[in-house]
Nucleic acid binder design. Sequence first.
DNA 1: AGAATATTTAACCATCTGGTTAAGTATTAA
DNA 2: TTAATACTTAACCAGATGGTTAAATATTCT
Lengths: 118, 118
Amino acid sequence: MVKYSSRTLNRTFAALADPTRRRILAHLARGDKCVTHLAKPHAMSLPAVSKHLRVLEKAGLLRRRRYGRVHEIRLDAKPLRQAAQWVEEYRKFWQGSLDRLADYLEKQNRPLEKRKTK
Amino acid sequence: MVKYSSRTLNRTFAALADPTRRRILAHLARGDKCVTHLAKPHAMSLPAVSKHLRVLEKAGLLRRRRYGRVHEIRLDAKPLRQAAQWVEEYRKFWQGSLDRLADYLEKQNRPLEKRKTK
DNA sequence: AGAATATTTAACCATCTGGTTAAGTATTAA
DNA sequence: TTAATACTTAACCAGATGGTTAAATATTCT
């Protein structure tokens, strides 16, 4: 069992729950961008995007560095590691359940049958 | 590039963003439970837990079957597959970035040096 | 200095969220 | 039939969320 920080998971999953923020991350994954550049494809005001960026920043999913008046934003996917592990743990459980179910059905369907090969 | 359903991701990540719901899933992973049973360890009212269960249900993360007055709840981790894939895509990007960064630093730090072995 | 650009902050609003208590609906037990 | 059990629904509340417009702050260009 891995140990997870509840606060980090709260913030990470909450940040990922918004489609605009996921799109922003998608753009970031294709190169660092400034705020205006990131805002352009999203049919909403600049302050709205600014807020989304702050949410992502608080979740630790991005870093920003100022060069004069432009902010250079880059993706920091570190928090995704915990999130990925958490999800995988349950996904594997589910896979395990399916496997056990398959075993079960296997035995149920042909209880006295001998396997042909091997 | 994998194709994701935005609505599904919205609901899945939002469902996972709450610690109570994650704890409920953790309990479910250890066996099917009825509502009262699931509610007991959470310092909150039954209706509150009932709401959480509905959120998880709408996100497709659990199924329920009624036996008389008790509801048997079981984990359904299918939606986690998409979520896991989405997260992994960005995690890998990050890993890739780190690798590229490492390469870069490698070259920067010893620009004229010949590698000793191989 | 003055104008344009990049970005944030402030104030506001509607809707969603996570909790409450009280009441309602089935189902099972006495 | 009455009482207990398992659960949901309704009504409410405080605070968060996601958007808006208008104003403020820095920086760069002319």
